[in-house]
Amino acid sequence: MKINVRKIIPYSEKNISYFNQKRPKMLVLWLGTLFACITIKMHLFVCVYCKKCIYSVKEGWLKMGLNSFVAQEARPLPIFVLADVSGSMSGAKIKELNIALRDMISALNNVNDIRGKFQLCVISFGGDVANIVQPLTDVAKVSLTELEANGETPMGSAFTQVAEMIENREIVSSRAYAPTIVLISDGMPTDFRGGQDYSNWAPLAMLHSGPRSSKCQRLAMGIGDDADMAMLKAFVKNDQIPVIKSNGAKGIASFFRWVTMSTVARATSVAPNNVSVVAPISLMDEEEITI
């Protein structure tokens, strides 16, 4: 095997005499080191001035040290709240909903020893379309604005919005646990015209069939006698999770406490992706809610 030394080391008058004296030993050293480096798929450079070998891996220098190790960020557990803010939610209902959301954020911020961290997104549906009033972010950074009630109940728009967000890996990290979707409403979707057969409704089918959105935990509550319980049951689509009905506005706070405890229970379990894990129903005020 013939080696062109001038291609390996820089040419200079200063190092020629040194090389002539040390040629046999250096050739053996180079060949042995080169063989070892090829074996571990590295490139070798030899610096004759400092008599040290400098290794590089592909495009960059191989640097090892304590500073090379970075703590991995906690895995997020996203929570999406789909909030009905139609005109029928005005008064005590929207007031209790705002209070319940703030209480949930406060409670989640004070949870310790969980397998990750909580993130929150709030999507309101009222008027003509759904709106993202709180983009998905860590609960510690949430600054929630007050929800106001007006207009119709475009629930389908909210389903489409949340499904698209969950499938977008730039919004919901690939490392995230299965999200929780919380739906609260006191009426029927005004963007659906199929009676009470929701099995083929495109927005709901999109939510149930998405590669990622289909794996979410879904929790729901209807408020008052006008709430479409058939719609809420079609949304949850899990026999192991009850659909909650509130007799009035006061049940909203009880429901969100249950949502908070259910989310915490999942985050502290050995299997946070088990979406059937919920808190006991007995923790809610039985005078305000029915199942």
Rank of each mutant, 00 (worst) to 15 (best):
I54P: 03
I54G: 07
I54K: 04
Y55H: 00
Y55L: 06
S56W: 07
S56Q: 12
S56A: 12
S56R: 13
S56L: 12
V57L: 09
V57F: 07
K58R: 13
K58M: 05
K58Y: 06
K58I: 04
K58G: 01
K58V: 05
E59L: 12
E59Q: 14
G60C: 08
G60L: 08
G60T: 10
G60H: 08
G60P: 06
W61T: 08
L62F: 11
L62Q: 03
L62G: 06
K63N: 13
K63L: 15
K63Y: 15
M64V: 15
M64Y: 15
M64H: 15
M64K: 13
G65T: 01
G65C: 03
G65I: 00
L66G: 14
L66D: 13
L66F: 14
L66M: 13
L66P: 12
L66W: 10
N67Y: 14
N67L: 13
N67F: 14
N67M: 12
S68Q: 15
S68D: 15
S68C: 13
S68P: 09
F69T: 14
F69P: 04
F69V: 15
F69G: 01
V70Q: 11
V70C: 07
A71F: 09
A71W: 03
A71C: 10
Q72S: 10
E73G: 08
E73H: 13
E73L: 12
E73S: 15
E73V: 11
A74F: 11
A74P: 13
A74R: 14
A74M: 11
A74Q: 14
A74W: 11
R75P: 00
R75M: 09
P76F: 05
P76N: 08
P76C: 08
L77Q: 12
L77A: 11
P78F: 04
P78Q: 05
P78E: 05
P78W: 03
P78R: 04
P78S: 02
I79R: 07
I79E: 01
F80S: 02
F80K: 02
F80M: 00
V81T: 04
V81N: 01
V81Y: 00
L82N: 03
L82M: 04
L82D: 04
L82I: 01
L82C: 01
L82Y: 04
L82V: 03
A83I: 00
A83N: 03
A83M: 00
A83Y: 04
A83D: 05
D84R: 02
D84N: 01
D84S: 05
D84V: 03
V85S: 15
V85R: 12
V85W: 03
V85L: 09
S86W: 01
S86A: 04
S86T: 03
G87W: 00
G87V: 05
G87K: 00
G87N: 05
G87F: 03
S88D: 04
S88T: 10
M89I: 01
M89K: 02
M89T: 00
M89Y: 01
M89Q: 06
S90F: 06
S90T: 07
G91Y: 07
G91K: 08
G91C: 08
G91S: 11
G91A: 09
A92C: 05
A92P: 11
A92T: 09
K93G: 07
K93A: 09
K93D: 07
